[in-house]
């Protein structure tokens, strides 16, 4: 039982990673892609925080001057604090780009197809102007 529970968090990390990654690749809606990216990143947070846990430990904040208690590892927590902030920064920038795309194209779906269609359109236009 504990053998399975001991790896459970890592399997959830894999599942969440896969769910988020799938949304990033397969969903054509740009907001959906960003949601998927957030899930993907949250999975990584879980990976790091799980590896820092110590059985019977507490949060690495010393209470009543007792430095000898069992504490979980502070370093992964510090790294993930950074990663969370990086995540929200990327999300904010991504959303700003989505808003601009919506204003420029009128849609946030299948934007690749529209953009490459525009390229063909351009070539046709220039072809006409040649004659």
């Amino acid at each position: 039982m504990s053998e399975i529970l001991g790896l459970f968090n890592y399997w959830v990390f894999v599942l969440l990673m896969v769910i988020g990654f799938y949304a990033v690749i397969a969903k054509p809606n740009l907001i959906k892609k960003l949601l998927g990216l957030s899930i993907f990143q949250a999975a990584v947070f879980l990976l790091f925080i799980s590896m820092g846990k110590v059985d019977g430990g507490t949060a690495p904040i010393i209470q009543n001057g007792n430095w000898d208690a069992v504490f979980s590892n502070p370093l992964p927590q510090v790294l993930i604090l950074t990663a969370i902030v990086v995540g929200i920064s990327t999300l904010a920038l991504g959303l700003a780009i989505v808003v601009r795309i919506k204003e420029a194209y009128g849609t946030i779906e299948e934007i690749d197809a529209i953009a490459s269609g525009e390229a063909t359109q351009l070539q046709q236009d220039s072809g006409e102007s040649k004659q």
Binding site: A83, I97, I101, Y105, I111, D112, I114, A115
Partner: peptide, 22 residues
Amino acid sequence: RALTAVFKYLITGTVGATFYLI
């Protein structure tokens, strides 16, 4: 089209950085 190009760049770049972090 700079916007669509940069969105794709952002998604790819973030996935790449997250893979690196894993």
